[in-house]
Design a binder for these strands. Structure first.
Lengths: 247, 247
DNA sequence: CTTCTTTTGACATTCTTTTTACAACTTCAA
DNA sequence: TTGAAGTTGTAAAAAGAATGTCAAAAGAAG
């Protein structure tokens, strides 16, 4: 049986091209002035409006005055701790995405973050791009495209929440990687995805195998899900570009 | 220093040459000759043009002479430190992606990278693939200049995002190169483009075929998209100059 | 250690790009 | 107007790349 334990980070590593930015306002809660400045620059360059608060109390006030699109929250804060801010915000606005900044030691236990209700976290020292990516992902996850959680086509049923795929009523066993690939393609249906993008988004930076690996996973998906794997209808090749999923 | 374990074998085996990439030039700023060599090979194998500078001063000069598509920057450099290079470049070109190479000890502090304005970082010793992945991701992100994304003329519809072109409602299959040529011409409508410019912009530095190749691609585009290919209306020849697209 | 998954490598096949050759066209000067 | 000289249109051949596929190797999980 395929073990479909998808790590937190990977589960939402879904990243359609961010074209023109409608953006939104991001509330940054951080007490170090240097970091404040840097974060402001980082997000503003990307077209987000940025509001900065230096302590938990003001953060909560600000949040209640006008809820932002997302919150970037340092866990170590004066007055009201980041944890409490997190809890309180989540109690009032469960869907508002919160990305936590934390020292590695603070999250020795990931469970803690889940309890807090944070959507994602980045440990210091972190890559600016990564933070950006996670904030984007968090935003997309809640607000923008309510990610497809159920898909139905041909004779295939996929429930991404349950991580279950059926074909004509029978469960199809996908391996973890196959499942992630499938999910990413489906959630980016009709868009051509290059192998590189798949490697980045589905495999991640840490393990970056050769592009042929992608082909093999597509092969498996076709074998398991296409009526006629040798002339695929849904998992299409776009020669010289990549693959695209069509319903 | 120079304890950068970059297995050369890995550099070779990273990825099968992935197609005609627009690629671009990468400025590598690094003083260790061994690493220079490895990085050159890594990126060139992947179809990027590589320029190497050994110290901060020359890096800045080079950047100002002709900005590259991305910068890979060692933090420890002679003359002008990597930090200063980073800051200065970001001040002048905030969107130019910079990936920093650093010893683990250099980034013990989350402030640093953010303050510098770097987009991403890799700690030594690093995996060639990871570096590549990060540079690619950085490039992909900024490369999203969503010029025109949708075009409509005569009976032709083009969706550059989906990489799809339709003619009277039916999908017209364009090859990768044809599509890129088409996109470039359309996004530079009414301007005369020389064959050399097309080769530079569409084909890129790496593969530079003869100018007749361009003619053939225009031919294909006419055959696929013009009502009467033998007297083209949209893909016009400007004798002695090149081609131009008119809506 | 065994089993299952992922990745690699090789090869055949298919599809794309480039070259090539020649006809047709344009330009310009005589 | 006519005829070089240079450009471009065109199709087909040649060269080159990308992909499909399978089996073996490497790696993880149990």
């Amino acid at each position: 049986m395929g073990n479909l334990a998808i790590p937190l980070s990977a589960a939402r590593a879904v990243n359609p091209p961010t074209s023109a930015k409608p953006a939104g306002r991001i509330l940054v809660v951080e007490d170090d002035p240097a970091v404040q400045k840097a974060l402001r620059r980082l997000f503003e360059t990307e077209g987000y409006a940025v509001e900065i608060q230096s302590d938990g109390r003001s953060a909560l006030d600000s949040f209640q005055a006008a809820p932002p699109a997302a919150i970037v929250l340092d866990l170590r804060l004066p007055k009201v701790s980041g944890r409490d801010v997190c809890k309180e915000v989540k109690a009032l606005a469960p869907t508002l995405p919160i990305v936590v900044l934390s020292a590695a030691s603070d999250v020795s236990d990931k469970v803690l973050l889940l309890e807090l209700g944070a959507d994602d976290y980045v440990t210091k020292p972190f890559s600016p791009r990564e933070l950006l990516a996670r904030v984007r992902a968090a935003l997309r996850h809640t607000a923008r495209t309510p990610d497809v959680q159920l898909v139905n086509f041909d004779g295939i049923t996929a429930d991404f929440k349950k991580m279950e795929v059926k074909r004509d009523g029978n469960v199809v066993v996908l391996t973890a990687q196959e499942f992630k690939t499938f999910q990413f393609l489906v959630q980016n249906a009709d868009r051509v995805i290059s192998r590189d993008e798949l490697l980045n988004e589905v495999w991640g930076y840490q393990n970056y195998p050769s592009t042929r690996t992608v082909d093999n996973h597509i092969l498996k998906l076709r074998q398991k899900l296409e009526k006629d794997p040798s002339s695929p209808v849904h998992f299409r090749t776009v020669h010289g570009m990549g693959y695209k999923f069509v319903r």
